[in-house]
Amino acid sequence: MIELQQVGYVHDDDSPWASRALDGISLSIQRGERVLVTGPNGSGKSTLAWVLAGHVAPTEGKAFIDGSPATESVTTTGLLLQHTRLQILAPTVAAEATRYNIDADVHRRSLHALGFDDSILPRKIDEMSLGQQRRVALAGLFARNCPLLVLDEPLAGLDRKSVSQLHAAVDGLPPSTTVVTITHDIEASAPLGTRTITLADGRLVTDSG
């Protein structure tokens, strides 16, 4: 399903500020796989997330989703950002579902799975805590029924109960949904993946798959 061929990414390419984030990454991820991507700070995890989600094209190599360039799947791939507030563009929780034409009942069920009740729907995004915003964003992504979800540090800012709810919600996704979780906390994220990829200095150093 996902195929990366010698993918490299250089930020600010062709400028004095050029900095390499990814170098020669080759891997394939099958439909329905649950993959953890880990590595130290600055190892290229988030850049890999952006490449997988189709938000940036690799500056070297090729990234494919179902045989087409990953950038063509940008509207059907779900990406959870580290800075969640920047991805929830609507003013309220209910309005965020409308943006993506999500069925109201599906959205409500997704919110319930992440520990909210219906009172959250009219709430303003800006009045929520970081953890609540993250769970709202996750609920929206899960309700969109995306074939590929890329979650960048989904556990950041979540309490233990919310982490458990997230684990259960990911378990409840259709088996065909591919989930790639970027994390620096491999222990807490372990239930989210069956395969672990480790990056260091932009290179793939281990792949348990």
Binding site: V74, T75, L79, R85, L89, Y100
Partner: peptide, 26 residues
């Protein structure tokens, strides 16, 4: 730049002005 990138994930259709306003407000 991140907000602009996120706005591209929305399904096609709908008012471009509304989308633009949402991006600007965020």
């Amino acid at each position: 730049a991140t907000v602009a990138a996120m706005s591209r994930t929305e399904p096609k259709g709908g008012s471009q002005i509304d989308k633009g306003m949402m991006v600007l407000s965020t």
